[in-house]
Design a protein around this nucleic acid. Sequence first.
DNA 1: CGCGAGTTTGAGAGAAGTCAAAGTGTGTGG
DNA 2: CCACACACTTTGACTTCTCTCAAACTCGCG
Lengths: 247, 247
Amino acid sequence: MSRAYVPIADHAPAARAQVACAACGFNEMCHPASAPPGAPSPVEARRRLAPGEELFHAGERAPSLYAVHAGFLKIRMPLPGGDRRTVRYLFPGDVAGLDAFATGVHRSDAIAHGDCEVCAIPVYRLEILADFNPRICAQLRRLFSGDLDAWQRQAAVLAGFSAEQRIASFLLDTGRRWRERGFSGEAFQLPMNRAEMAEPLGLTHETVSRVLSSFRARDWIELEGGALCILDAAALQGVLAPAEIRT
Amino acid sequence: MSRAYVPIADHAPAARAQVACAACGFNEMCHPASAPPGAPSPVEARRRLAPGEELFHAGERAPSLYAVHAGFLKIRMPLPGGDRRTVRYLFPGDVAGLDAFATGVHRSDAIAHGDCEVCAIPVYRLEILADFNPRICAQLRRLFSGDLDAWQRQAAVLAGFSAEQRIASFLLDTGRRWRERGFSGEAFQLPMNRAEMAEPLGLTHETVSRVLSSFRARDWIELEGGALCILDAAALQGVLAPAEIRT
DNA sequence: CGCGAGTTTGAGAGAAGTCAAAGTGTGTGG
DNA sequence: CCACACACTTTGACTTCTCTCAAACTCGCG
């Protein structure tokens, strides 16, 4: 279990996306401020995943919590009818598996999106740690709460926004997430193709392509390959305003 | 702060919806198994709300956690563009305000949906309690995790389902929630009108009305006033299956 | 009785999906 | 080094679903 500190790349294109431990959701668990120096980290294993490899799936017992260290995770949710839908992409520093605490069973799937590296803590172990360490407990609460907020916002976006608005919101949100990680929020790599982008937004890849083309035609974004550049964030924000206000 | 134990009404029409403390998300906090009998409950106040009264709103400092004791709460989320959208209705026993732990600020609005009664614990107080009581900590984790699961599922439904499927899913889900509370999951009161039902599903009230009419025409449901009776749950489930499987 | 809020139904418009074809790279093997 | 295959993207034409606007209907209530 490496403790190597990877410096935050400032405004670097996130080609090999990786994030510092300091910016990771596991930080308090992994490098407890309260622990004596040299104490073993409670994080059990760093695991490397091949593209498309499954990290866990809904129904799996003996769940673990995972922090994305490098690359991306794709979260899928089983729908009541039986098929599965990608609902979110996790970036380095994000945490997966929080939905397993209530039942002791994973409720979603996590799949490596490209090469991916994760840090793992088994949930049973975390429960024991938490019982004796209020700081870890509090850190978990913050993780849960932040995640909850993100999901509520996503539900609101899906319920309330048109295709154009969902995509504008997605681009701005992705920029914000990169910025929070110390990268540029205006120029970054979109780590997924049109179809993969469309899925969690509840759209088709053709619609995504059309909307991106129209944003490009209006000079609000630049886009070649996976490289996105937000030229006019204010204009994208403007799309999100309800019609009455936009006039 | 009353500790009256309200017995679970078995298969009663949830006219005056109320739930036993035993089925409440606060139970461990409110009636700690570890506490000596007669010790004061950490729950600070039982509060009564008039219809439409605001319990908290996004941005509010000094947040509290609330358990719905009787009636319903409506959760609204501010959208990035500025307006607000109802994203969920909370039933007796549900908990509101979990999204405030990460930032110490409420991230959503909660509004009484009809007459409503809630139990409250200030977050700062819960944080202190949690630091010394691992059972409360664990209970909080279960609450968070279960909520997370519900939101993820809702996002998947919104991203992946048609109007008809969303409504079938909503009816079955509402039935499940009543069943979990000891009421009938087949016959219950829908506590909201068409427009209020449409909002968190990302639909219009006309679409909801049309789909309900078609379900009724197929004898899958019965519906008069707010009273819903699910006559053919299997048929509703069938609507949720992806087209390839349905044949 | 008549009002108002909520519901239902209809007709037409518009947004997004579907199907299809062409365009753009990118990597591989001859 | 070129040719080809393949995956992804873009664009177009058409279809379908849901929204919008409008009107009629129901029901409880003053």
